[in-house]
Amino acid sequence: MPKTLAEMLGSPMLAVATGLGGVMGLLSFNALFCIYLERKISAWIQRRMGPMEVGFHGMLQTVADMVKLLGKQLITPKGIDKPLYHLAPLVVFAPVVAGTSLMAFSGSFALHHIDLGLVLVFTFGGFAVLGIFMAGWGSNNKYALLGAMRSVAQNISYEIPLLLSALSVVMLTTSMGRTVTVGDETVAVQGLNLFHITMVQMDRNVWFIVLQPVAAILFFIAVLAETNRAPFDIPEAESELVAGFHTEYSGMRFALFFFGEYSNMLIGCMVATTLFFGGWSGPLLPGPVWFFLKSYALMAVMMWVRWTYPRLRFDQLMRFCWMVMIPLSIVNLLVTAFFLKVF
């Protein structure tokens, strides 16, 4: 059983403070690292060098950019819907912190350990849409509104295959191991508990991507769409919508949206790692190292996809979701249920 931070420190308040600090540190590092990674990967795919000037191979470029963003003037346009405009970056960013703290980083340590882990991750993930809509509506700009509108439509649609494909893993988890023995204690498996999902995969020596390849692919595509990544990035299609929902945001407010996007990508990859790639399990290296290695490998695949496929048109995107992804995920769920019942 993983020990929670509160148990280790002996004080809930201290645990909240250190946990928040740790998660914020992780997310800040993640954003800086991912922007650098994205630039280098895109440059590599396009046979360029990418950033090279600041630091060794441009490694401090994103730090310099961050300082620039901090120093930038915050421009507040006229005619905005004040409460919505100002709250939007927070509504996008705050749930991300909560979602990250639920992750199953390792078998011996956890920030939270609750049986509802997976449900809560999706719960906090749902807030991003509201924040994006608040930004688009509050900006009083037609490009921002169009971007927000596309984003809401896309997020609602792709949430269905996302949840359905995760559900097939939950079914598998509860059916494969009623109890799991870790070390010298035996736990009753809860299908929605992120730690238990990993433990069942360790116990059976199999990654769920082997047993659920369709669900894994559907999940990954849905994560791409939920995080507004290319080829599903029409909410911020630069060529037609200026910058989409964050057109009217500048300085740190804009940076918070960016933070939110990269953090959501990380959460998506971490959940995919837990569900399909055996979480923290792996030989030699300690658990958290494996967990982050797998997560960032998935992240690199996301970037690879972005610089490989062109952006979809809006109706293609919707048709793909409703005509391909949702029927496939329902069929996958039914087939999984059938096999679990028969065998």
């Binding site: 509802l116 999706f122 609602i156």
Partner: peptide, 22 residues
């Protein structure tokens, strides 16, 4: 009742409110 609380947020804030916005 953490389960009901999670469902309240997932369904009513994440689902119904977003559907209203839509």
């Amino acid at each position: 009742s953490p389960f009901v609380a999670a469902m309240e947020v997932l369904i009513y804030i994440g689902g119904i409110s977003v559907a209203m916005v839509f």
